[in-house]
Design a protein around this nucleic acid. Structure first.
Length: 294
DNA sequence: TTCCAGGTACCCC
DNA sequence: GGGGTACATGGA
């Protein structure tokens, strides 16, 4: 696999930073390499992504090789959400709510990735009541055990995210090696539920009505409002969705004086000040409170 | 050792 | 329908 990667360059990219985008908490499998590049796997393809912030150039080395340059360009622009005018969004957020300035400044290069729904669902199901280092470990263990091996990169074995069919065939105890704790039961059951239609609804949920999507997600074992909202924001293009977890409750309390338990008031605040970019505002705030602003 | 973590299911009223 | 609690595990 090493040496078989194709190079793709995207020029003129502003409002972007690989470190902030890949380490702001929206994804769990991208890893920073010693040369500053980020290695990850998208749709079963390896990618190594660099950003030159002086020349505003993204360079992607990947084994994703559609037959045309145009398709390749569209694929990566979509995944990295480069077709959206973040400068305009950031201006709008600060104008509507000056308190947002520091949070946006700290994560000015964040973009909300358009991730794969199935992987995002399982990843955030695992994330509940856990911490990010451990979540990453659990997901890697899951991929190593049940995902297709797709090569090596810098001496590390790479595995695709396990398929719906694979995970839906597992028993709860098969997942013991992943250290999921009580979430193993949820994962096994949710996988079976998603596989009822082979994942068809989930795969096209970005085009379905938001209420139906949320109801569907919350009908899955181990999926409540928080996980459903993360899937909708990070994989189903619902940039208006405002997921609230302990960190968001903390930052909303600190910045706006809203009682930490009053999530309804937080959603109302987001609706009033951040719409229709509540999800993007949420990510600036989450990144800010967790101290990733450097 | 103890506390806490990108919550949810389940029980009780 | 709102409020309290158990839940498995490991990183800090």
């Amino acid at each position: 696999m090493d040496g078989r990667l194709t190079r793709h360059v995207i020029e003129g990219v502003r409002d972007f930073n690989t470190g902030q985008t890949f380490e702001c908490g929206q994804c769990f499998r991208w890893r920073r390499g010693s040369d500053g590049g980020y290695t990850g796997i998208v749709r079963g393809c390896v990618a190594n992504i660099y950003y030159d912030n002086e020349e505003d150039i993204i360079t992607i080395w990947s084994d994703y090789m559609p037959h045309s340059e145009t398709l390749r360009d569209a694929f990566w622009r979509d995944y990295l959400d480069l077709n959206r005018d973040y400068a305009d969004i950031k201006r709008g957020l600060v104008a509507a709510d000056p308190v947002m300035y520091d949070a946006i400044d700290a994560g000015a290069g964040i973009r909300i990735l358009n991730q794969e729904p199935w992987e995002t669902l399982i990843s955030f199901l695992i994330s509940q009541n856990s911490n990010i280092p451990r979540i990453r470990g659990c997901i890697e263990a899951l991929c190593t055990a049940f995902g297709e091996r797709i090569g090596t990169f810098e001496g590390r074995e790479l595995h695709a995210f396990p398929t719906i069919q694979r995970l839906s065939s597992l028993k709860e105890e098969d997942l013991d090696i992943c250290g999921l704790g009580y979430r193993a039961k949820y994962l096994a059951e949710a996988a079976r539920q998603v596989n009822v239609d082979g994942g068809a609804f989930l795969a096209t949920a970005d085009k379905a009505e938001a209420g139906k999507v949320e109801d569907y997600l919350k009908s899955l074992s181990g999926v409540g409002p928080k996980v459903a909202h993360c899937v909708m924001l990070f994989a189903l293009r619902r940039t208006d969705i405002f997921p609230i977890d302990v960190w968001m409750a903390r930052v909303m309390s600190e910045l706006y004086g809203i009682e930490e338990s009053d999530h309804d008031a937080m959603r109302a605040y987001a609706q009033e000040h951040f719409s229709p970019w509540g999800g993007i505002a949420q990510q600036y705030l989450f990144n800010y409170i967790r101290g990733n602003g450097k």
